[in-house]
C-alpha cells in the first residue's frame, strides 16, 4: 500500500477533528475531536517514518500519545469541575472571561 493513502487518511481525519472542535458545543465531543486530531497526526508520523525507513516518526508518535494522555487527564478534570458547578457541559455557557 502506498504511504500516500495513509497520509491522505490522516489529513481527512485531522480535518474532521478540526471541524468538530469548531462546530460542536458539547465539551466531551470537543475533547474526542481533539483526540481524533492527535490520532491523525500519529498516523501521519508513522506513515512518514515508513517512507524514510527510520524509526524517528514512530518515536515521536509515542511522545504524542503521552501528551494526549496527560492532556486528557487535565482537560477532563476541568470539565468535571465545571459540570459540577454549572450543570452544563456546553462550552458556549462558559463565557465569563470576556470584555
Amino acid at each position: 500500500m502506498s504511504p500516500g493513502n495513509y497520509v491522505a487518511l490522516a489529513v481527512i481525519l485531522f480535518v474532521i477533528g478540526a471541524v468538530g472542535v469548531l462546530v460542536r458545543r458539547n465539551a466531551m465531543v470537543i475533547f474526542m475531536c481533539v483526540e481524533l486530531m492527535l490520532n491523525a497526526v500519529n498516523l501521519a508520523f508513522v506513515a512518514f517514518a515508513r517512507v524514510h525507513g527510520q524509526v524517528d516518526g514512530q518515536v515521536v508518535a509515542f511522545f504524542v500519545m503521552v501528551v494526549a494522555a496527560a492532556e486528557v487527564v487535565v482537560g477532563l478534570a476541568i470539565l468535571v469541575a465545571i459540570f459540577r458547578t454549572r450543570r452544563s457541559a456546553s462550552v458556549d455557557d462558559a463565557n465569563l472571561l470576556k470584555y
Partner: peptide, 16 residues
C-alpha cells in the same frame, strides 16, 4: 477588547 468574547469556539477558530 471586543475580540475577547469569552466564546471558546471563536478562540479555537482564531487558533486554527
Amino acid at each position: 477588547r471586543r475580540v475577547q468574547t469569552g466564546f471558546v469556539r471563536s478562540y479555537a477558530l482564531s487558533m486554527f
